[in-house]
Amino acid sequence: MKSFTYERATSPAEAATAAARVTGAKFIAGGTNLLDLMKLQIETPSHLIDVNNLALDKIEAMPDGGLRIGALVRNTDLAADERVRRDYGLLARALLAGASGQLRNKATTAGNLLQRTRCPYFYDTDQPCNKRKPGSGCAAIGGVSRQLAIIGTSEACIATNPSDMAVAMMALDAIVETARPDGTARSIPIADFYRLPGDTPHLETVLEPGELITAVTLPKPLGGTHIYRKVRDRASYAFALVSVGAVVQRDGTGRLALGGVAPKPWRITAAETEMPRGAKAVAARLFADAKPTRDNAFKLTLAERTLSAVLAEARG
């Protein structure tokens, strides 16, 4: 690990200002992803700003019936919250499908949104990777790509977003609240939060340098049946090959987002209009522009079958 200086921030504004002031600074909250990457020298911050004391660890009811989730709410606490379990079961299920009990106890809501890909070539510093080292090339294209993305990819990158939680947030139309170094705040709909790789795969979100996530808000509950179905190589503690998060209403309409298939949680609202017609029609819309590799073309079949299972489960 490279040496770094460390400070404990006492307010979101102070944290954002410090991050913009010090070159090479990064925020640290749970640290479960960042420290892993620092040990491998994939991340080499010169300064860490510990944001754990910012009192952003509450889940509050909103006047419109929604919920405001503080950036520092731990994954365990979010999944266990009575309101989340009752009204946003998709989110609780997605959180519980991710990582291990130890990691969920540390990992935060904002940190989960920002976790980096587990593409093996991103992790292997002996290999080229445009995300880790812009312009160096992509070893995953033409390499071992069974786990990697089938849609939303580019000539520069085929990495997947690894988050389960973000899939639920996407289907639920969450809004990301931030504090910026200039003292202003903004609200970013999650549909606009993630970037596709294009020719800049190292830029993964629309966050600006020093911008700090302070909360994630959920609109009022949608009702319906909430399902998160995750298909992986072992029964627990593994990243998704394919996952489907869904909210399905009694008339068969609803929302859908997928994990494990794209560089961001994959949601196409036009595909949702096909939900009453079944999985084949939905998958046709979701994956019209898919560009799988030889190794991961199976994900197209797997995604359609997982969608089929989810829609069948929702019918009861």
């Binding site: 640290g31 479960t32 420290l35 130890q102 106890n105 540390k106």
Partner: peptide, 8 residues
């Protein structure tokens, strides 16, 4: 419970 290896 936490992983003590992934925290400073």
């Amino acid at each position: 419970r936490i992983n003590s290896c992934l925290t400073l």
